[in-house]
Amino acid sequence: MRQKMGLLVVALLGLLSGYAWVGGLTNWTQPAVARSTIMPAQPHIAYLAAPGAPHGLLTEATLQSKGVSLAQDWKAVQAAAAEHPLDALLLDATALASAGDAERAWVQAQMHEGLVVGGVGVDLKPLATLVGVPTLRDPGEADIPLGDDGYFLYYAYVVGKPEDVQQWHNENWLARQFSGETGVPPGIQGYTQASNGSSRGELSTEQGISELFLDLQSMIGSTYQMRADYVQVMQESAGENK
């Protein structure tokens, strides 16, 4: 009887390790995909929206011609991000409305890794909730809606030692600076770079479409550059300590 139980345990362990070996492990742990310091020629941009609903000149054909992958639900976006780091996520009002707590937490965790988030034809309030800030409107700005053809991009990214990065995230320091506060979070010990940026525009002209993709390139490029800067500073620091 004891021998049979032992065999069963061994068989189960073998089965589990075999499952993990062929890729099942990723389903259990969903590890963070390591991000590079070199921006790829074609950044990974996903567009999560109701199918067949253009915004100005931003159509599915335009998006596909720019290398943007189209997704119709959050699971598809998350699966794509697990396979290859997502650089930017654009979404429309329908997708924004479908985001629950789990999706918001996922987006914010991705932003901590450098994700740029963009709303197309959305209200700024729910977009602010998605990216985890009280507001996306500057205190000196009039309350001008984006409109159906408008877009708004936002990113907030910090590089540094994990404990210093956490200090920046605590109490939303970057968002507070957007709202007019000065200073830095207490307790920062080492080198950090902390950055946030926003951009809004119209998609009703070819120039507007071109601006959207220029802005995306710039913001995505900025996060890659920050990672590269951090690696360089750490290497220089290690060289000095030798």
Binding site: D138, G160, D164, L174, Q177, F178, V184, I188, Q189, G190, Y191, T192, Q193, A194, S195, N196, G197, S198, S199, R200, D215, S222
Partner: peptide
Amino acid sequence: KQENRNWTN
């Protein structure tokens, strides 16, 4: 548009 960048140490 806006870009806000901080550097420490």
